[in-house]
Structure formats: C-alpha cells, structure tokens
Design a protein around this nucleic acid. Structure first.
Length: 554
RNA sequence: UGACCGAUGGUGUAACUGGCAACACAUCUGAUUUUGAUUCAGAAAAGUCCAGGUUCGAGCCCUGGUCGGUCAACCA
C-alpha cells in the first residue's frame, strides 16, 4: 500500500479537466474575500486550496475583493487581507474588485430585463419575505412581477439615477416562486443604498447582490474553477442560471468543507464582536484565530501552510483539533528557533562554594537541531535565578529536580547539590542554597556523577527583566457556538497570563521582532511589538510538549 | 412536509476507481537525551451509519432507511 495520500477531489476534477483540454487546459482560480473583517485560519485553508491548486497545475490565482456591500466594507480590511495573503507566501496574478465590474453588472441586469427575466419590485422587505414562502411551502408572485419590459427598464434606470430612497425598490430575477430551491424564488439582484463605497464613492446608489456579482465576476475574469465553501452549494444552480441566460464564460463552482477548529470561533461576526467588546486587544490579539493574530503569536507561514496541507480537502463537515495546529508550529519552530534561558517565576539559587562577584562565561548551543551548530556565551556566577517549581521542599515521587540533598545539572554549566533553603516568616521560600561540583563543568565533566534532571537558569546580576505573555485557548469549551447561551460566556478567563518579572539571559535584550526563540523547557516565544528599549515583551507561541505534566495528571 | 450535500479508528484524511482498510495528529509503552523537548522503536485503536440487493468479491455500485449539515438577509 502506498504511503502517499491520494489526490483530493478537487485535484482529481482539475486533473481530469486539464487532461480533456477543458478551458484549453488552462487553470485560473480566485480568492474572493469580502473586505469586511480580517482573515482567519479558516481563510488560510481556502487561500492554500485556491493558490495551491492553481500552482499545482501551472495556473494562476486572482485576488478579487467581493465588495458589493458598501455598508460593511473598508479599505483597512483590504490592506489587512493583502498583508495576510502575502505573509502566507502567496502572490496573486491580478488584484481585482467586484466593484470594478459595476458597469458591466448593470448592463447584465438590463439584458435580463430585456429578456423578461427581471423586474423591479416595489414591495417592502417584509412583503418580499412573506411572499417568499418557506422551504416546504411555495412562495407567491409579487404584484409587480408582471410589469412590462419598458416599465422595468425605466424604473431600473431611475433606481440607478437615485430617484428612489433606500429600500423603496429592488430589481429581482423572474424565475420561479415555487422552486424547491429558495434561491430561485425571484432572488434580489440589485438594491438601493445611498451609501459611499470604499472604491466607487458616491458614483452608485444601487449595488448588486452576491449572487448577481460573484458568478459574473468569475465569468468576466474567465475563472476556470471557482472554489468556495459548502454553504454556497445551493447557490450553484443560480450561479449557472445567470451564466446561461447572459451567455457568459462558463466558470464552474466547486465546494469544499470549511475548516473548523475547536476551542475557538471562526465567524467574522463573532470575531468582530470580540474585538468591539474588548474581550481581546484587537484583530491581531495573539489569542485570535485570525492570521494577524497567529502572526503576532509567533506562528510561521510555513507552519500554517503545512497545517492546511495536513487537514486535507473534502466535502465532509469537520472540526480539527487545535493540537494539530500546535504540532505543526512546534515542528517548524523546533528546527529554527534559537534556544535561550528565561526564568518565568524566579527563585534565587545561591551557590555557596562560589565567591561573591565570581563570573565565568560558558558556551551554550544556539540550536541543537540546526544544520550548523553555533554557540554563544552565557554568564555564570554565585547568584542565579531558577524556576520556582524546579525546587520542592518535599519532593513528590519521580521528581528529579532540586530538593534538599538532591542534585541537578544546570544546563550548559555545572551539577549542583541542594544544601538547604531559606524561608521568610510566612513560610514562603526565598532562596535555595547549593554547592556546585567543579569537576562537572559542561563538556568537561569528569565528576563521574549521573544526574537525571537538567534545569535552566539565569545569572542574576546580568539578568534582563522582561514581560512574558502566556496564552492559552480563548474558550473553555470545544465548540462555544453550540453551547447554551452566549458564546462569550465560554471565554477562558485564563486565556492570557501576563508575567511581569521574568528574568532573561542577556542576549534577549537584543531580540528583534520576527525572531523565534525557544525558552528552554518553557516553549516557543517571539518578541512582541509592545517591546521597548530596556523592556522586552515576549509572546508565547506554544508550550513545549509536556510529557511530565501529562504523566502527573494521570 | 421541500431541495441539495454528507457519513471510514478519539480527530482529520486515504484506499491504484469493485480485490480483503492506510497515513498523520492524539493516546500508551520502551530506548536515547546536559531541554521530563527533540529523535528512535513499538503498541493499542475502525471492519467503513443501518437494512437489503447486484457481484466470485462491496468502504466504493443500486434501493430504502437513520443521523448530521446547508438553504426561507435588500449579507457574503
């Protein structure tokens, strides 16, 4: 049996089309975001599918903003979308806008009217809704359905000319009010909105609906494979109806199942709510499933692309475990992140058999996984910071870190033996005392000692105080949207822990945005934009896999 | 009492298009390790929603169910 995954259903379809010379063997896809919010991890799957498929078959991909609703769309979103796609590593062949096609779309509408396939309806939104029927009951014809072509042409022109108020009239297709497909029950083609558009300004006061814009835009660009998510499936017959009636290029729509991730929400509406109600700091809050959030969190484009590859493409509803995303970023960061030592919860370790002021510089590896091994020097002396939980007054079973009488290796330095500890009046441990074994120097160890535990540490006098932000999943439940009540009731109160007094080794003072670090035994971290001179701030991308923590749970 | 779509280990995705279910993640062992990480070796885990049918042979085809999703915005 082959270990290689077979092609997904879209690759099969396109391979077949290319083989048969459909569209002249050409492949042109498009990624069609509406600029009404930031892109999220779900979009990244769609981006990878659209750009990936085209690239696989030697084709191209257009970026097309589906900007037919001026009330929700903004230039800020256009810019963020472009930034995110570029960051993911994709290049579009053309940057288009559905609004570029407004004149042609208007002409298409006129053509439908002339064919008797569209009419102007004066009914109110409520009336239209009530005449629509339900999925199990047919709708009723609008009293305006029988208007003459001349009257419709006149009215539609006057709609365009701004003679009517918002909502006063709409242009509808004349199809079948009894169709079992709700989208065929005389769908609205154009509505009046006296609203400035982010690109066309006040030039138009009528705007096409999605169904009347998307397929035709595909046709205008001669898109060969128009790939979208499952919820548009019921729109496909209408998509094809317009193409047929207007005699346009026959683009074909294909649908795949969108990506769902557990412990988060993925709808733009909900994400917008989190931003507006300040449950997060913004669209790029590192807890957000947005591409900008993942970027700020320290995810790499490679890891996101790899994730999209691993989740696959199919037509079945799915909920992916965030654990897979985390695996992908760890896999990537393991081989590229510089190792560094940072103590998040500092406890003083005093090495009694070392004189005050003693400092020596020890080499330590930057990345044991790297092709070319490099080292840097770290200072070592009498007073160090170690992690508070790397010491236990009364060690639990199988604990192999520091405890009275126990030995551990200080990473890249010496083996130390705990000789005691100090407590304050309230019983709080204030320092751990130890003696070091001079013969156990890292790389020159002839002490003959075998210790199981290795802990990280930072030389106290030269430590760099810094802020570290620890992120956890944004929601406490796997699927916040399906729980009773408001999804926001399920926000994880511990999704962000800010550690103010972390102690880092000196080299991290010079950490630059975009660099990735592994704080040894703690996880992967990136400098945050909030860093300032002398006050580094780090975001935790993801923890290290914790076999010990897991074992303790059981 | 509608239309359309879907159903394969815990989670995803495969199965040369009808030939006796594979890969990844997760899980559990063990080895290695100056990160309880990484790496390595191994284990457990579905008989493919159900019932019929066609066939020498069905996860793949047919019929009928069951369950789940989508559609009734002047959103996309």
């Amino acid at each position: 049996m082959s270990t290689e995954k077979g092609p997904n259903f879209l690759e099969e379809i396109i391979a077949e089309d290319v083989k048969n010379g459909k569209h002249g063997g050409r492949v042109l896809t498009r990624f069609p975001p509406e600029p009404n919010g930031y892109l999220h991890i779900g979009h990244s799957k769609s981006i990878c599918v659209n750009f990936g498929l085209a690239a696989h078959f030697g084709g191209k991909t257009n970026l097309r903003f589906d900007d037919t609703n001026p009330e929700k769309e903004e230039t800020e979103y256009v810019e963020s979308i472009k930034t995110d796609i570029r960051w993911l590593g994709f290049t579009w062949a053309n940057e288009f806008y559905a609004s570029d096609y407004f004149p042609q779309l208007f002409a298409f509408a006129v053509k439908l009217i002339e064919q008797g396939l569209a009419y102007v309806d004066d009914s109110s939104p409520e009336e239209i809704a009530s005449m629509k029927g339900t999925p199990t009951e047919p709708g009723k014809d609008s009293p305006f359905r029988a208007r003459s072509v001349e009257e419709n042409l006149d009215l539609f022109t006057r709609m365009k000319n701004g003679e009517f108020r918002d909502g006063e009239k709409v242009l509808r297709a004349r199809i079948d009010m009894a169709s079992p497909n709700m989208h065929f029950r005389d769908p609205i083609l154009y509505r009046i909105k006296h609203t400035a558009h982010h690109r066309t300004g006040n030039h138009w006061c009528i705007y096409p609906m999605y169904d009347f814009a998307h397929g035709q835009s595909d046709a205008i660009e001669q898109i060969t494979h128009s790939i979208c998510t499952l919820e548009f499936e019921v729109h496909r017959p209408l998509y094809e109806w317009f193409i047929e009636k207007l005699g346009l290029y026959t683009s074909r729509q294909y649908e795949f199942a969108r990506l769902n991730l557990n412990y988060t929400v993925m709808s733009k509406r909900k994400l917008l709510q989190l931003v507006q109600e300040k449950h997060v700091s913004g669209w790029d809050d590192p807890r957000m499933p947005t591409i900008s959030g993942l970027r700020r969190r320290g995810y790499t484009p490679e890891s996101v692309r790899n994730f999209a590859e691993r989740v696959g493409v199919a037509r079945r509803e799915n909920i992916i475990d965030v654990g897979l995303l985390e695996f992908c970023v760890r896999e990537d960061l393991n081989r590229r992140a510089t190792r560094a030592m940072v103590v998040l919860d500092p406890l003083k370790l005093i090495i009694e058999n070392l004189p005050e002021g003693h400092v020596e510089h020890l080499p330590t590896e930057n990345n044991p996984e790297a092709e070319e091994k490099t080292t840097r020097e770290i200072p070592f002396g009498r007073e160090l910071w170690i992690e508070r939980d790397d010491f236990m007054e009364v060690p639990e079973k199988k604990y192999f870190r520091l405890a009275p009488g126990k030995m551990v290796r200080l990473k890249s330095a010496y083996i130390v033996e705990c000789t005691g500890f100090e407590k304050d009046a309230s019983g709080h441990i204030t320092a751990v005392l130890a003696r070091y074994i001079p013969e156990s120097k890292s790389g020159h160890d002839n002490s003959g000692l075998q210790v199981k535990g290795v802990i990280h540490w930072v030389h106290a006098p030269s430590a760099v105080p810094c802020e570290v932000r620890l992120y956890d999943r944004l929601f406490r439940v796997e699927d916040p949207s399906s729980e009773a009540g408001d999804f926001k009731d399920y926000i994880n109160p511990d999704s962000l822990t800010v550690v103010k007094g972390a102690m880092a080794e000196p080299c991290l003072n010079a950490a630059k945005p975009g660099e990735h670090f592994q704080f040894m035994r703690k996880g992967y971290f990136v400098p945050d934009a909030d860093s300032s001179a002398g006050h580094p701030v780090f975001n935790r991308t993801v923890t290290l896999k914790d076999g010990w923590g897991k074992q303790k749970e059981n």
